[in-house]
Design a protein around this nucleic acid. Structure first.
Length: 497
RNA sequence: GCUGCUAUAGUGUAGUCCGGCCAAUCAUGCGGGCCUUUCACGCCCGCGACUGGGGUUCGAAUCCCCAUAGCAGCACCA
């Protein structure tokens, strides 16, 4: 091996390159001339952490290879459309910072789908099936063609025309793709691509009643929009197989597909219907309630969009089922937030302490320990302070108030008395005293820190009021997002430690 | 049940295609230490995995077979 290194350094290097940790996403075949990819949510509610994976992965590949990134709103099922969701999805995508280059909405494109369906009838690739649904299922299970399958093209076109002019009621007719009735997977056999829906009315297209099914509109749009690569969950593997039949009937080029595995997410509610019910019942405060897994809830908790994207990219496109790790997300977020978050004192469960023998003193505490240029907060000591109750236990005889001075504790039973014990940090170190946060008794604002499973009450520096909407670090507590500020109260959400 | 996919430390991930560098990568987590006027950040050390069983081979995380487990789909949803 040593000789190889000497005789053929390139070969030697190549051998070892293989074992370096590969960074970034795996290459996509056929990406030499750029890519066209899409993110295709269903507008049934706001985006959640599960959507973020597809959104971030596609986004990253478009950035890597160059090309177009299409946002396609898939609203072809009026039952699953929430009119408010169009706007929410738009907001969520803006928050995530995706490089979307164009947006299309499928309900605007129904005529396109109708036209392509007619072409497919003419090609003999599909047929208009008027069989009873249950009956068709039986035939399908038995691998037997239904009578409609052999209809002449003219009949198919006539029935299609009758569909479009509302000559059928809901449930009476469906357009089916000719696949392979002998296919071992019944899910592949002559699946439907159009149906009639009389109710509910589509919130954006009240006059529509012939709707394409997802397997058709997706193929039509992927082709029409020039989509080259599709990255989506493995729940679509069967759909990919089905969609191939449509591509074949048209003679179209099939995009490159990658299907990533299922991502289990614990600790938050993700089901749109469950979230909506909870909001309606008043269990949740809204779509951004921090117990939910929506992107807006993460934003409210102080998670940055970059952290979300980074966490998703680290997970990648593997087809293994995985469980999403909040720890990893928090770690990504901490990397981003630690350098920029200002530091403040928050005293949980405050106890008022009057310190005898202490001179008046003005403390200057750095806004950020790594960046002196940011300046300091000024805290004036004039006799009484608020201290964290948890630090005052009968075995504690000395504490150091951070950036101030040392205090010794004398215990009369369970009641402590506090005495000034000098300014020297070295004394506190020698006594192994905790260096704790404190607040001037006269200069503090009541503050509540909400966590997904409870709340901490206490007080914080008045200056925190100026940090509304930002993430700060409450020293010795953790990072929090300042959510609401009023004259006499501050509310914050706990982000992570 | 049928059809398919997958299986590396607590979690995520690299390596698997084209067997030897793998006594297995990186991150996170956890434990310990250093640094530090935060239980943060940074630095150092440590813990911890190739699902099981056969086979092929001089040699298997990597190839083959079987088993097991998990997941997906089997809608006039997306």
């Amino acid at each position: 091996m040593v000789r190889l290194q000497a005789d053929a350094p390139e070969q030697y290097a190549a051998l070892f390159a293989k074992h370096e940790h590969r960074k970034g996403l795996p290459d996509l075949e056929g990406s030499e001339h750029g890519v066209v990819m899409r993110f295709a949510p269903n507008p049934s509610g706001p985006l959640h952490i599960g959507h973020a994976r597809a959104a971030a992965l596609n986004d990253a590949y478009v950035k890597q290879y160059g090309g177009r990134y299409i946002l396609r709103i898939e609203d072809t099922d009026p039952k699953r459309v929430d009119p408010d969701a169009y706007e929410m999805v738009k907001e969520d995508i803006a928050w995530l910072g995706l490089g979307i280059t164009e947006t299309v909405t499928q309900s605007d494109r129904l005529p396109l789908y109708y036209d392509l369906c007619r072409q497919l009838i003419e090609r003999g690739g599909v047929y208009v099936c008027t069989c009873d649904n249950e009956h068709f299922k039986e035939l399908k299970q038995a691998k037997v063609a239904c009578p409609c399958r052999d209809q002449p093209v003219e009949t198919g076109l006539a029935l299609w025309e009758k569909m479009l002019t509302h000559g059928f009621a809901e449930g009476e007719v469906t357009v089916r793709v000719k696949t392979d009735l002998q296919h071992p997977d019944p899910a592949m056999r002559d699946f439907p691509i159009f149906r009639i829906l009389d109710a509910p009315l589509h919130p954006k297209k009240a006059d529509a009643f012939v709707y394409p099914l997802m397997n058709f509109s997706v193929v039509a749009d992927d082709h029409l929009l020039g989509v080259t690569h599709v990255i989506r969950g493995k729940d679509h593997i069967a759909n990919t197989r089905r969609q191939r039949y449509i591509y074949d009937h048209f003679g179209w080029k099939v995009p490159v597909y990658r299907h990533y595995g299922r991502m289990g997410i614990e600790g938050v509610v993700l089901s749109t219907s469950q979230m909506r019910r909870g909001i309606d019942d008043g269990v949740y405060s809204g779509w951004d309630d921090i117990r939910l897994g929506t992107l807006r809830a993460l934003a409210r908790r102080g998670i940055s969009p970059e952290a979300v994207k980074n966490a998703m990219l680290a997970i990648g496109i593997g087809d293994t089922d995985i469980s999403f790790s909040w720890d990893n997300l928090f770690a990504e977020n901490k990397k981003l937030v630690d350098p920029v978050a200002n530091r403040y004192f928050f005293v949980p469960d405050p106890v008022t302490a009057t310190i005898t023998g202490a001179p008046h003193h003005v403390a200057h505490a750095q806004l950020h320990p790594g960046d002196a240029a940011r300046g300091v907060r000024t805290l004036t000591f004039s006799g009484s302070v608020l201290l964290p109750g948890a630090e005052l236990r009968p075995d504690v005889t000395m504490v150091r108030l951070k950036d101030l001075f040392n205090v010794s504790l004398a215990w009369d039973g369970a009641t402590p008395s506090f005495t000034y014990a000098g300014d020297w940090l070295a004394d506190a170190r020698a006594a192994k005293a905790h260096i704790i946060q404190w607040l001037p008794a006269q200069e503090s604002v009541p503050c509540t820190v909400l966590t997904p499973d409870g709340e901490m009450t206490g007080a914080c520096e008045p200056a925190v009021r100026s940090e509304l909407g930002r993430v700060v670090q409450f020293e010795r507590v953790g990072f929090v997002k300042i959510d609401a500020v009023s004259e006499n109260r501050i509310r914050a959400y706990f982000t992570h430690t």
